[in-house]
Nucleic acid binder design. Sequence first.
DNA 1: GTCTATAGATGGATAGAC
DNA 2: GTCTATCCATCTATAGAC
Lengths: 221, 221
Amino acid sequence: MTDPTAPEAPIDTEEDPAATKAQVFCAAERLFALHGFQNVSVRDITAEAGVNLASVNYHFGSKDALLFEIFRRRTGELNRERARMLHEANDRNGGKPPVRDILEALFAPPLRWAAPANDRRISVQFIIRARSEGTAEMREALQNDVSHLARFAEALKATLPDMPPETVYWRLHFVLGMVHNNRFVEFDRLHHLSGGLTREGDVAGLLTRMLDFAEAGFLAP
Amino acid sequence: MTDPTAPEAPIDTEEDPAATKAQVFCAAERLFALHGFQNVSVRDITAEAGVNLASVNYHFGSKDALLFEIFRRRTGELNRERARMLHEANDRNGGKPPVRDILEALFAPPLRWAAPANDRRISVQFIIRARSEGTAEMREALQNDVSHLARFAEALKATLPDMPPETVYWRLHFVLGMVHNNRFVEFDRLHHLSGGLTREGDVAGLLTRMLDFAEAGFLAP
DNA sequence: GTCTATAGATGGATAGAC
DNA sequence: GTCTATCCATCTATAGAC
């Protein structure tokens, strides 16, 4: 927002220099999260942001580079939040946190972001979409950045020393599937199927439900 | 394959009349499953099929209509296979099959299709991609066709009369997430993460793993 | 039914004025 | 840094010969 008390502030337009770049960033994230990567053109983005068509290439180099920058920032933020929670769970439990605490470190950050009033609600959808619709560059980054997931796999193996490692990996794959399925479309479909019984907005309740399910699944014989 | 014993069969080209349409169908399914909907042009499809550029519009009307026809046929086949297994489980158990049998009717068909030597291996990937990258028409069809899933929800509610219905729906959502996460890319990532421990080809083993996990999750308190 | 050629539309990127 | 105007590649769809 432009400060109305600023001496030379015009009525509406003319924001600070860095604003254009940020507006392009946010508009692109939003449109891609809602409509998919290939369905959004540079023209759509600049129109939504209320800036010039050329600003995408000026500030980011290309459409792909813009979207990769959004991807890198958001996944970085999410992974850091997850790592911090895992670290805290480790500290609380002398290096061997229970399965439920490890899973909570995996589930809670994206669910908190997805809360109805949260600005980051759209960022989660962006990240989920990037997993399946992303550019080759994004997929390569996901493929190479297993270090973040490896920490969770190690924590689970340490807590479940008697479980065969491949079982731990498969079950980690299953819980990740649970997370990645939390898209707007799937929520809507579930809402439709259940006749309105499921409430998407209750993220705290959803976290408990996911943990109940995933913990029991992980501890299955 | 052209029968080499056929009297008038030429050397290589000139197949039967319906062959072109089928070749376009298969090439399109394959390319879309591998590279994504928006990344495949009509030119790519006709080149892969070895047919003329105009044949897509002649036989199917448009690119979107072609892809919707693939979508409709494959989802129909999959849903029928699932419904038949659910029906058999009902018959075996006097209308109240155990949770594991219901989940098996949901999991087994797509996993059988995904077996390494199976032709339909690619069809599963097509369907999964269609869920997130499909056209508005496909998404609408998915949204409106909850009748197929409703049968599974009813079976689960009948078997678990003491579980709140919304819990049944949410847990059904979770197991669907497990299924939809079985994409080539995710398998590769898991293989990378586990240092080669997980073998994608063992679909019978994967079915058991998924059932162990999902059954325990569904029966959690 | 199959093919070539092309219309018609769209989108990414850039040159050059300001 | 921002804007307009435009280039150029690509794509879907179709007309019309055979």
